[in-house]
Write a protein that binds this DNA or RNA. Structure first.
Lengths: 200, 200
DNA sequence: CACTGAAGTGGTCATGCGCCCACTCTAAAT
DNA sequence: ATTTAGAGTGGGCGCATGACCACTTCAGTG
């Protein structure tokens, strides 16, 4: 086995491996060994590029959140036009249905990681708060309550993308899949926006 | 240290200890040692009364779900009356805001436990499916999508009751608390029920 | 062409977890 | 009074995980 041969883009390689493990085996299987094995590199690689496994996870999350630029731009554009409902629904659906967001709350269950994430988080916040505050505005709710509701929506849909964690209906064995989740987000947002006292 | 002295109601004692640990230290701290230590009993006690730690957790969850009888009755009654919106909102709020339900999805993250839970789960299902299907009906959505949406709502609100797991707004340090969660559930359900094509 | 340092490897360690089990104690049965 | 079954105790085992580190290899530098 050759050693010392430089890998190309080890960080991305590890991030992609982590995503594959997460989607295939679920969050409880996301260990440092599982990631390095999946990436077919030695255990030490992870520790050379990241101070910590939680550090790795935090960077992993932020990397995925960074891919939200597209949906965020669509959201801004939708807010500017006259026909708000259609475009906003579309943009919000894309935003909340994104796999990138879905990964976030999963990792939240690692307590130390949560602390770590709060340090690097601000970079990704604006993209998400925008959408959430818009929902709050359309609900004409207090800002905090609106945010809380949106938080619940995101946190709730996330586990289902990754392993079908729902328990209420155990008869439905397979996870719903990204497309079904998108449809639900769209429907829920649509229902909220159909509120009689709508604004446009 | 006296040994062999029979504890009174060891199961309830352990369940209560588990809930205290969960609410105080979060789901990642919910280990078998933490439970027995919190209950101030020896490690072995847990294994005498339960075949397994996951068995204990499954029984724990089912015990808490069993406390949903009150909200479920209120829900049935609300469905029978004429003024559906007010009563239904109240009943659904009580149902989804319940701490008992909140515990369920948390434990979902333990993979083996999920399998175990599916075996004992049917006993508690009707109580929950009732409320969820009602929401689906009011949303006039396909049954599966409605259920999925409700699942997301429950799963999403749960972690917030237990440690404030939300990340979108890291500036809000403290968990929202049960009362705030209730308000949000009520608001969201209310918004959905204000749909122009409402039924009552 | 030697030198140096960055990068990858894999053996090893400490920790914590769930679980087993030999032991002890109590209370009910004969 | 002796027996026996049930219940609580805690030492310790096996395993998995994250972290550490001595060693190896290669690219770039003068």
């Amino acid at each position: 086995m050759p050693t010392g041969v430089a890998l190309r883009d080890p960080r991305t390689q590890l991030f992609d491996a982590a995503e594959r493990v997460l989607l295939r085996d679920g969050p409880s299987a996301l260990t440092s060994r599982a990631v390095t094995d999946e990436a077919q590199v030695a255990k030490g690689v992870l520790h050379r590029h990241f101070t910590d496994f939680d550090d790795f996870l935090a960077e992993f999350v932020m990397d995925r959140v960074g891919r939200l630029d597209g949906p965020a731009a669509a959201l801004r554009e939708a807010a500017g036009t006259g026909s708000v409902i259609g475009n906003l629904t579309e943009a919000l659906t894309a935003l909340f249905g994104s796999v990138a967001v879905a990964i976030v709350p999963l990792l939240t269950f690692r307590d130390p990681l949560r602390v770590r994430l709060r340090e690097v988080w601000p970079a990704g916040v604006p993209v998400l708060t925008e959408g959430v505050d818009m929902i709050a505005a359309y609900l004409r709710q207090e800002r905090d309550l609106g945010r809380l509701a949106a938080d619940a929506e995101v946190d709730g849909l996330a586990p289902m993308l990754v392993g079908g964690a729902h328990l209420l209906f155990a008869d439905r064995a397979a996870p719903p899949g990204a497309e079904a989740v998108r449809k639900v987000v769209s429907s829920v947002i649509g229902a909220v926006l159909r509120d009689p006292a709508k604004r446009d």
